[in-house]
Design a protein around this nucleic acid. Sequence first.
DNA 1: ACCATATTTCGATCATTGTCGAAATAGAGT
DNA 2: ACTCTATTTCGACAATGATCGAAATATGGT
Lengths: 106, 106
Amino acid sequence: MKLEQAAKQLEAIGNPTRLKLYRTLVRAGEAGRPVGYLQDTLGIAASTLSHHLHRLILTGLVTQERQATTLICRANYPIMRDLIGFLADECCADAACGATESDAAA
Amino acid sequence: MKLEQAAKQLEAIGNPTRLKLYRTLVRAGEAGRPVGYLQDTLGIAASTLSHHLHRLILTGLVTQERQATTLICRANYPIMRDLIGFLADECCADAACGATESDAAA
DNA sequence: ACCATATTTCGATCATTGTCGAAATAGAGT
DNA sequence: ACTCTATTTCGACAATGATCGAAATATGGT
């Protein structure tokens, strides 16, 4: 069931710390950001950050790639697009909400 | 801080039961749905449903209107659009992700 | 082999959440 | 006033989550 997956992803970014974290990665683009940089930026314990990163990775929203001793984290854009699509898709099923300003019309 | 608000809303729909609930209301459109109908549809205890509805209402995602003894619940589309907008806005800040298929280009 | 840096895993603690049933409240009809 | 239906509030419980510091692991340089 896709809804379960969507709920997990929404819950993942439904925490202020993780949303901030995810935002940072989304803005960073394909370059990504090392874990250490994220720790400095967010100012939280390394273990806490690791915990949150793990949750984002589990849902597929974030990926990691090793570069020597540092781990580069990246936002997974296709997954992000799917999630946004899922939400927008929900919209307008029966009512005109104007979310896309043209999709709603029959 | 808008991020806090977005996180709260994402968390609200980040629970399977609430996402299902919200989805039902979003699909219902302006007509909305009575609480009792939602209870039958979701098959959960009335008190549990009330609890979840309360959370959705607190974040502004859902509104209620009394009609005699029944309460009609409705999705708040503008809020929904804002939330989707917030997510899409995050995207493409520094990278081309193609979410809107035209915004990203410089 | 050893050391230094980067990151995760472990163990603990405190707060929050999801769920229920039972009791309370709200509104309308008799 | 009484009763019926609709819904919420209360009180409880088990489960999960957020956070930290300390210890463990990973990778590369000397």
